[in-house]
Each structure stands twice: as C-alpha cells, then as structure tokens.
C-alpha cells in the first residue's frame, strides 16, 4: 500500500476536484491512522488471495432489451432548469480548448 502523508491526501483531493484547509488535512491524516489500523484486520486473512471479489450481492436477471415505446422527451427548458449558467439554450462553461 502507498505511504500516506499530507501530500498524498492533497493529491487524492485534487484528483477529485476539491480542496480542504491545512487543518482539515491534518485531521484527516489522524483519521487515516485509525482507518489503516482497521484495514490491517482485513489484511490478516491470508486466504483472501484465493477468494474471488464480490461486487454485487447476487446476480439479478434483467433484460436490457425493451419494446420501443414512443414517449415525449424532456423539454430543453426542463432539462436545463437546474443549470445556473446557460446561454441560448445551452450550458455555458469556460473554454476547454484554448
């Protein structure tokens, strides 16, 4: 497992596009000591290496195919009504390609 320190935690935060105060990172670093100690409990089970991962509790049979049923799509105004920066019926953002 990667070492953890303030810089690694900042890297993880910035990768998720948010930041915290220095004090908050310090608090998190202390929490990591407990979290990592708890993780070691999982690490104690050497049999795990032979075990398959479980993602969902069980398989759910479902059909991805369905009949085509004509419906009325969401009007543009409705789709955009929660966006707070828009222009000409589109969401406005800073230029991505400069």
């Amino acid at each position: 497992m990667k070492e953890y320190n303030i810089e690694i935690l900042k890297q993880a935060a910035h990768g998720l596009l948010f930041d915290m105060s220095e004090e908050q990172y310090e608090t998190l670093l202390q929490e990591f000591d407990i979290v990592v100690a708890q993780m070691k409990i999982i690490g104690e089970n050497k049999e795990l290496d032979k075990t398959e991962q479980m993602v969902f509790p069980f398989e759910v049979s479902t059909s991805v195919m369905r009949e085509d049923v004509p419906t009325t799509p969401l009007p543009r105004e409705e789709a955009l009504r929660n966006a707070n920066n828009k222009i000409g019926g589109q969401i406005k953002l800073p230029k991505v390609v400069l």
Partner: peptide, 26 residues
C-alpha cells in the same frame, strides 16, 4: 471521498479496494 480515492489509487487497489471486495465474499 479522499479515503475512497486513496483506496482506488493504482498502487492501493489490490491492498484496499479489491481486498475489501474479496473479504465481502468471505
């Protein structure tokens, strides 16, 4: 979120996230 991202980092996935998923099966 940071704890989650840490567990998903390439270097940690095997030791944390995938190991937790395996332990879930146990």
């Amino acid at each position: 979120f940071i704890i989650g991202n840490f567990a998903l980092m390439k270097e940690n996935q095997n030791d944390l996230f995938l190991r937790a998923q395996k332990n879930r099966r146990v």
